[in-house]
Deep mutational scan, measured.
Amino acid sequence: MFKRLMMVALLVIAPLSAATAADQTNPYKLMDEAAQKTFDRLKNEQPQIRANPDYLRTIVDQELLPYVQVKYAGALVLGQYYKSATPAQREAYFAAFREYLKQAYGQALAMYHGQTYQIAPEQPLGDKTIVPIRVTIIDPNGRPPVRLDFQWRKNSQTGNWQAYDMIAEGVSMITTKQNEWGTLLRTKGIDGLTAQLKSISQQKITLEEKK
């Protein structure tokens, strides 16, 4: 169930391209415009997507990853294993993690069937560096609404905000991946996880038929 919630949630996290980005210092504006741009692209490019579902990787690479804190999220997933990894191991892992996100997020976007969304009203940021933004996803086919909290983090150097995690039903996506990959990290280390991520990233994206 959580895996499905995570995939549905990713439908609204794909941010804007650099040329049309919203105010990078306001995570609420980023979330709002990102959702609108993403849904528009999914709707307008269905012919290309249906002809070649792996085209979704391109959308992810162009529109999402430049505005997601990939390395920060990847380091959180590694936890204690990050500090013990060599620079070469980290570089290989982050490259594999990025390719994994292209496949995983692309597969999530393949679930698009006309969903709509509501974003919580903007709250004062103050001096906060981590801000959760509640998004409610509404399914046109009558499924119950899904309420999610996207975690946005302020870059201490640039002042810009980027998304790095999502919490559904009190469970963090980062925590879920830590639990899912924990045994592999304990037995085969970061190299074993890197190899698995490379394998997963090679899987073809498949479209979910409308139910």
Rank of each mutant, 00 (worst) to 15 (best):
L5R: 05
A9V: 12
K3G: 07
Q69F: 15
L76S: 05
T187Q: 13
N160F: 07
K188E: 12
P121C: 13
I174L: 15
N155H: 11
T136C: 11
I119Y: 07
N179K: 14
D61S: 04
Y28V: 08
S199T: 03
M166N: 13
M1P: 06
T58D: 11
L78W: 07
Q48L: 12
L185N: 15
G142A: 13
M6T: 02
I119C: 02
Q202H: 15
T136A: 10
F94S: 01
F150M: 14
A104N: 01
R4A: 01
R41F: 01
Q107W: 11
F150T: 09
L184F: 08
L109E: 05
D191A: 08
T187L: 08
L193F: 12
N52R: 04
S156N: 02
R143Q: 03
Y112F: 03
A35Q: 02
Q80D: 13
R41I: 15
Q178C: 04
T20N: 08
R134T: 00
I167Q: 00
Q123I: 15
I167A: 10
T194Q: 09
P144D: 09
I138P: 06
R98P: 02
I174C: 06
K83F: 09
V131N: 11
N155T: 12
Y164F: 06
V12F: 14
M111Q: 01
G126V: 07
F94N: 01
E169V: 03
N155Y: 04
M31Q: 02
Q80N: 07
T86L: 03
Y28S: 04
S199L: 10
Y100G: 05
A35N: 04
I190K: 02
Q157V: 07
K3Q: 09
Q196V: 15
K37M: 15
G142H: 14
Q107F: 07
K37T: 13
K3D: 03
T116A: 08
L148G: 10
A14V: 12
W161T: 04
M6W: 10
I138M: 06
R186C: 14
I49K: 12
G159V: 02
N179P: 08
L64T: 07
G170C: 15
A75P: 09
E122K: 08
L16Q: 02
F94G: 10
Q46L: 04
S199Q: 14
S156L: 13
Y67C: 15
L42G: 12
I137T: 15
P53R: 09
Q203V: 02
D149G: 05
Y164L: 05
A34P: 03
A163N: 07
D127I: 13
T176K: 07
M1V: 02
K102T: 13
T187R: 03
Q151I: 15
M6Q: 08
L76Q: 08
G106I: 14
T183Y: 13
P144N: 13
L64S: 06
T187I: 09
R98T: 01
Y100D: 07
A18G: 09
E209Y: 12
K198V: 15
Q202T: 04
A88I: 15
P53Y: 01
G126R: 07
A18E: 03
I190S: 05
N160R: 08
F2D: 04
A168W: 15
Y93G: 13
A96T: 09
S17W: 01
R4K: 05
R98N: 11
V12S: 11
G126P: 11
T176L: 12
M111W: 06
R134C: 14
P121E: 07
A21N: 02
A18P: 03
L76G: 11
T86M: 07
L125R: 09
Q62M: 01
A35W: 12
T86V: 03
Q151P: 04
G106C: 06
I119T: 10
N160I: 01
T194P: 02
I59C: 01
A195K: 01
Q48P: 00
F97T: 04
N26V: 07
N141Q: 04
V8K: 07
I13F: 00
L101G: 01
A21M: 02
K128Q: 05
G126M: 15
K43L: 04
K204F: 15
I59E: 01
F150E: 14
M111L: 03
G74C: 08
P124K: 06
E209M: 01
G189V: 09
K211Q: 15
L11H: 01
Q80I: 04
L148K: 13
F150A: 15
L125W: 11
G79R: 11
Q202M: 11
R143W: 06
A168S: 03
I167F: 14
N26H: 05
R41K: 15
G159A: 04
V12C: 00
R134V: 01
K43G: 05
D61V: 01
L30Y: 00
K211D: 12
Q89T: 10
S17A: 02
D40A: 01
D139P: 08
N52K: 01
A120N: 01
N26W: 10
N141K: 03
A96E: 05
A96M: 01
T136F: 10
D127T: 04
T20E: 15
N179D: 09
L193A: 11
A51D: 02
V131P: 09
A96H: 07
A108L: 07
D54A: 00
K37I: 05
A85I: 15
T116E: 10
V60W: 05
I130T: 04
A195H: 12
I13S: 11
L65S: 12
R41E: 08
Q69K: 05
A88V: 05
D23S: 08
G159S: 11
T116G: 09
V146H: 10
N179V: 07
G114Y: 11
S17T: 05
Q123S: 14
A104F: 02
S84Q: 10
G106L: 04
A96L: 07
T38N: 06
I138N: 00
P144A: 08
L125C: 12
V8Y: 06
A75S: 10
S84A: 02
A96F: 10
Y28E: 02
V135K: 00
Q89C: 04
T58Y: 10
A9K: 00
W152F: 10
Y55M: 15
I167E: 03
T175C: 13
M31N: 07
T129G: 08
L185S: 07
M7A: 11
F97C: 01
L30E: 03
T86Y: 08
E169W: 08
P121D: 11
K37H: 15
V12T: 01
E45P: 05
Y117P: 04
Q107M: 08
L197R: 06
D127N: 11
W181H: 02
T86N: 14
Y82S: 05
F39E: 02
S17C: 07
M173T: 08
F39R: 04
G79S: 07
F94R: 07
L109K: 15
R147T: 01
A92N: 02
F97M: 13
G142P: 08
R153N: 03
Y55C: 12
A18Q: 07
A14I: 15
Y164C: 11
G126S: 14
K188H: 11
P47M: 02
T175L: 13
P47R: 07
P87G: 08
S172T: 02
H113R: 13
F2N: 05
